[in-house]
């Protein structure tokens, strides 16, 4: 009993240290957002700002059309999350429950996609979007215009699929008892009905996990919007952060103020989905 208490104590101390290490960048971001540039550049470091002021937030928000940037990020993130939840869970269900020729090869190909860095597929994806038929002045062969470049649709389409989401859903659905499928079949339900009326309503945990990971990834994505957008009309919050950076200098105080505002929606999303997130990770067999 005594040993257990000691181990528990050590565990708590280690976890506290680990948490502090992980929280340090966030804490630094938060405190820097209240400092003046003089204080940031000062050789004497103060964790707590000498004078709390919201002027950085006011200046940061005044330096661009932030309502538009937040709206753009929101459109892209919400659309990508909704469509990816739908497509990934359907594909995950198919791989977990349907027997069809080539399913193993298809799944292996998906797994290869899981190991592929986004930078490798960026150019081919960009070309597919640029050559999208009958869009942006393109003809049926995808020539003559710019396809889906600089459009929300072009930004969203490549984000709605994902090997990780399909893999997660497949693992999750494989834990469902087969008796459920058999009962549904006896009641005359087809595969689509079984998915929509039995599997989907019982997928809250995995969908919340997926929504959170996808949402954070899309919200924080920088590279894809960078190459796909050309105008303020489609600029996302992450791209807008570069406004505070010149060739040689960075306006750290305003950049950190904007960064605090940008992470807020993700923190709220995490707090709302936290319960399901842990459950989803555990039940999908990922640890």
């Amino acid at each position: 009993m005594k040993h257990r208490k000691v181990y528990h104590g050590i565990w708590v101390v280690l976890m506290t240290i680990a948490s502090l290490v992980m929280l340090t960048p966030t804490i630094m971001m938060f405190v820097t957002s209240f400092k003046t540039m003089e204080e940031i550049k000062s050789p004497v470091f103060h964790l707590i700002p000498e004078k709390f002021s919201l002027v950085n937030y006011i200046d940061a928000l005044a330096s661009g059309n932030w309502l538009l940037y937040f709206r753009n990020s929101l459109i892209i993130t919400v659309s990508a999350v909704i469509f990816s939840l739908l497509f990934n869970s359907i594909a995950g269900y198919a791989f977990a429950r349907l027997r069809f020729r080539g399913s193993k090869i298809l799944f292996s190909l998906l797994m290869i996609g899981l190991m592929m860095p986004a930078q490798v597929t960026m150019l081919p994806t960009f070309l597919i979007m640029a050559k999208f038929p009958l869009a942006g002045g393109n003809n049926i062969l995808g020539q003559g215009g710019t396809g889906l470049i600089n459009t929300f649709v072009g930004l969203i389409i490549p984000l709605v699929s994902g090997s990780y989401g399909i893999f997660l859903c497949k693992q999750f659905y494989e834990n469902f008892p087969r008796a459920l499928d058999e009962a549904a079949e006896i009641d005359g339900a087809g595969k689509w009905r079984t998915y929509f009326q039995i599997y989907l309503p019982n997928s809250k945990a995995i969908l919340a996990t997926l929504a959170l990971t996808k949402g954070v990834a899309v919200w924080n994505d920088y590279l894809w919007p960078l190459v796909m957008t050309n105008s303020d009309e489609h600029k996302t919050v992450q791209l807008a952060l570069t406004m505070f950076k010149t060739e040689t200098t960075i306006q750290w105080n305003q950049m950190m103020a904007a960064a605090v505002l940008i992470v807020l929606p993700m923190i709220i999303l995490f707090l709302l989905a936290q319960k399901y997130f842990v459950q989803g990770i555990v039940t999908s067999g990922l640890k």
Partner: peptide, 18 residues
């Protein structure tokens, strides 16, 4: 619908000189 939405965007037509 996605295709039409893409077509409907005025901005993208200006990306490549024409």
């Amino acid at each position: 619908m996605l295709g039409i939405t893409g077509c409907g965007n005025q901005g993208n037509e200006e990306l490549v000189s024409s």
